[in-house]
């Protein structure tokens, strides 16, 4: 694999993460616990899908085969998507939505901070834009973790269940493969081991303050770096890609 191919795949991974999580949040539109929260969730979804678009556009440029952002989002199959298993997990109740968001926000926050040092100018620019958005996302999800964890007995129980249930997907956030190796050497991508340490300390701190017990690290699910997903992704794509697939000659 050369640097160009690695960079292409790397951009796809980041874009897929944002698109799939943005898709999940967009499913919540008109389903929020209160109108204000509906608007907040939509803001985050818009940020994420916006980031995905920039990343797909860059991926398409790097690839240089004339594909567009929509080709990349709408015309790849399940095994060609590289988003994390965590990002595709169903919304569940509000506690699951918030726990999933929080784990990813903490990751994104430290990740984009590191990506600001990338030797790739475009990724650096993207990171500068994303870090502002992600800082707010993290603030939002942290506030909710505190309120649900230390709110009522019921909310505490629900959040603990959500955290326990999603924990097995968190290990994968930090997995690295050949793509990372190549790009770390070039100074383009951050080393995810460094991010893992920061992630763990931040997550421990917030969970402790919210009176939630941090789960023991056990068996971690894996697969997305090779395009192996949970059954959920197939349905996301079936829904998302339906019009493009049903009318391949149409422009939208």
């Amino acid at each position: 694999m050369d640097t160009k191919e690695a960079l292409f795949k790397y951009c796809l991974r980041l874009a897929d993460n944002n698109l799939v999580l943005g898709h999940r949040l967009s499913e919540l539109c008109s389903n929020g616990p209160i109108l204000e929260e509906d608007i907040a969730t939509t803001n985050i979804a818009l940020d994420l899908i916006g980031q995905a678009r920039h990343l797909y556009q860059y991926a398409a440029e790097v690839e240089g085969k004339g594909r567009t952002e929509d080709d990349l989002a709408y015309k790849r199959a399940e095994r060609e998507f590289y988003n994390t298993l965590l990002s595709e997990q169903p919304n569940g109740d509000f506690a699951v939505t918030i726990a999933r968001q929080f784990f990813i926000d903490v990751f994104d926050y430290y990740f984009y901070k590191e990506l600001l040092n990338s030797k790739d100018e475009r990724l650096k620019e993207l990171a500068a834009r994303a870090i502002k958005e992600v800082t707010y996302h993290l603030r939002h999800s942290t506030q909710w973790i505190l309120r649900l964890g230390d709110g009522t007995e019921e909310s505490h129980k629900r959040l603990q269940t959500a955290v326990d249930g999603l924990w097995m997907y968190t290990g994968e956030l930090f997995e690295m493969n050949e793509v990372d190796e190549i790009l770390i050497k070039e100074g383009i991508a951050p080393n995810l081991n460094d991010i893992k340490t920061k992630w763990e300390s931040k997550v421990s701190e917030v969970l402790a303050e919210s009176t939630i017990t941090k789960p023991e690290d056990g068996w971690m699910q894996t697969g997305s770096r090779k395009g192996m997903h949970s059954e959920h992704l197939g349905y996301i794509l079936a829904e998302m890609q339906y019009l493009q697939r049903a009318y391949p000659d149409a422009q939208w």
Binding site: D38, I39, Y56, Q244, A250, W252
Partner: peptide, 20 residues
């Protein structure tokens, strides 16, 4: 979730958010 392009997806989402 079925909007046929990323552009149309964000536009629709922003519009519905405005309604909220």
């Amino acid at each position: 979730t079925r909007a046929p392009s990323l552009r149309s997806k964000v536009v629709l989402l922003a519009k519905i958010q405005d309604e909220a």
